[in-house]
Simulated assay, not measured.
Amino acid sequence: MARIVLGIGSSHTPQLSTTPDWWEDHAQRDRRNPELLGRDGELHIFDELLAEKSWNIDPSRLTPQVWADLHGRAQTAISELGRVLAEVDPDVLLVIGDDQEELFLDDGTPTFAIYWGDTIDDFAPDEHKQEAMPAGLRAALWAAHNDTRESYPVPSKLGLHLIESLMTEEFDVAQLRTQREGRSVGHAFTFARRRLMGDRVIPLLPLLINTYYPPNQPSPRRCYLLGRALRRAVENFPEDITVAVVASGGLSHFVVDEQLDRRVLDGLRNRDFESLSTIPRRYMRSGTSESLNWIAAGGALEGLTMNLVDYVPAYRSTAGTGVGMAFAVWR
Rank of each mutant, 00 (worst) to 15 (best):
P34D: 12
P34S: 14
P34M: 14
P34C: 12
E35Y: 15
G38C: 08
G38A: 12
R39D: 03
R39S: 11
R39G: 06
E42K: 15
I45A: 07
I45G: 09
F46S: 09
F46E: 05
D47W: 08
D47K: 13
L49I: 05
L50V: 13
A51N: 11
S54G: 03
N56K: 14
I57Q: 04
I57L: 11
I57A: 06
I57M: 09
D58R: 04
P59R: 04
P59C: 06
S60M: 07
R61A: 13
L62H: 03
L62A: 03
P64H: 09
V66R: 10
V66Q: 11
A68Y: 02
A68W: 03
R73M: 05
R73E: 12
R73T: 08
R73D: 06
A74T: 06
Q75I: 00
Q75W: 05
T76L: 12
A77F: 00
I78Q: 03
I78S: 02
S79I: 00
L81V: 02
L81A: 06
G82T: 01
G82S: 09
R83E: 10
E87M: 05
E87V: 05
E87L: 09
V88S: 06
P90L: 05
P90T: 03
P90A: 03
P90E: 04
P90G: 03
D91S: 12
V92R: 07
L93H: 01
I96T: 14
G97S: 14
G97N: 13
G97M: 07
D98C: 13
Q100G: 02
E101V: 15
E101C: 12
E102M: 10
L103V: 13
L103K: 03
L105Q: 14
L105N: 13
L105K: 10
D107K: 13
D107M: 07
G108N: 10
T109M: 14
P110E: 07
